[in-house]
Design a protein around this nucleic acid. Structure first.
Lengths: 201, 201
DNA sequence: AAGATATATTACTTTGGAGTATTATCCTAC
DNA sequence: GTAGGATAATACTCCAAAGTAATATATCTT
């Protein structure tokens, strides 16, 4: 238990990674204030001062996790933009695959997602950025006359992000639905609406 | 400033109400942990020990606010259920007026809403209850063949609550949109969908 | 083999902020 | 006008948890 001094080769990178991994888990489970530095270091097999060898404060390690989330998310966005250029499938599939990428990403990074998307102070801005990007895409399709002309696409984008938020927590993270299912169901609802077009009324 | 002893008639009810009002504002603005009991009592023109005359702990006053929110919301639900029975307008108006009531309520109780709907630990259950209720209503309309038969109404309800959450924060509380506008826009989107039915494709 | 450096520990300080012991003042009832 | 309950203030205690000073040990370099 807890050797002193320098370990073989590792140069402490392992300790830092261990701290980040445990911190992600703890923050995701308990939020920022409920999470104690002492818990993080204990679970990482270290002691308090070692923590401050790698991070200047509790705030700092939290921000590093938020940053990681944001960067990964930005990369995802870039990738899926490239893909969708090559994509000549129909509208449903096009939109659905974009959503799929998001849900898949959230599912693959549950802890980071809880931190960066739900807990962080900057979650607001992160979501705002996503809204803008979705609104932009929707607007393009609208101008191509795929969508109704009378809709405010920013509002639509807000609704979609709201739906994503909610379904991520209640259906994805509970394991009730797969990323693919959620992507399809959202597109189905938003594209075609609830109304029975063969309605008898 | 700050007389000692009993005040005329008031029996301390005023102090309690002042504390609740200030606490609602502070919690809504800064969240639970960032809010200090010392700030609450200062702003209410009292001192720390007086606080504990009315509430057993900081947690207790927060819970009382959450409780108030929940009760008001439940009353709202009861009322709007009565109204919708008398209502023989069309589908759009029916759904819209239900949503309007919710947005109107949130707008009228911004602090309580932030606390009970976004900050509280029980927010999850409160929303869950709303989802179930909406899902129930939707299901009835679906069985009457107003809505497509192939949709999972729980998922739809989740999406709608997500949209409500999001629009409440970004459009209602910022003053960008009125309750009526939001209610109409949501119904429009969800009922008819995005797709251009007169599409040229 | 001997610094030098990185990594870790033991044991401590500090502080913000929740909650309290005690005392004082005002109002009502008798 | 005085006893007693209610409402308030002064001046604390207490504790959890962040952060630090001083020190020890393992490995790398030459």
């Amino acid at each position: 238990m807890g050797q002193r001094g320098r370990q073989k080769g590792s140069i402490g990178v392992k300790s830092k990674e261990a701290l980040l991994a445990v911190a992600a888990e703890e923050f995701a489970k308990n939020g920022f204030h409920q999470t104690k530095v002492s818990t993080i270091v204990n679970r990482a097999g270290l002691t308090q001062p070692s923590f401050y060898l790698y991070f200047s404060s509790k705030e700092a390690i939290f921000q590093e996790l938020v940053h990681t989330f944001r960067n990964k998310l930005i990369n995802l966005t870039k990738e899926s933009r490239l893909e969708s250029n090559l994509d000549n499938s129909n509208l449903f599939t096009k939109i659905s695959s974009g959503l799929l990428a998001v849900f898949q990403f959230f599912d693959d990074h549950r802890h980071l997602t809880r931190i960066g998307f739900f807990l962080a102070d900057d979650a607001k801005e992160i979501k705002q950025a996503m809204v803008m990007q979705i609104a932009e895409n929707l607007l393009a399709e609208q101008q191509d006359n795929y969508f109704r002309q009378d809709l405010d696409m920013v509002i639509v984008a807000e609704c979609i992000i709201g739906a994503i938020e909610r379904l991520t927590m209640t259906k994805l993270f509970t394991g009730e639905k797969s990323p693919q299912q959620l992507a399809n169901e959202i597109v189905d609802i938003y594209l075609y609406g609830l109304q029975n077009t063969k309605s008898l009324k």
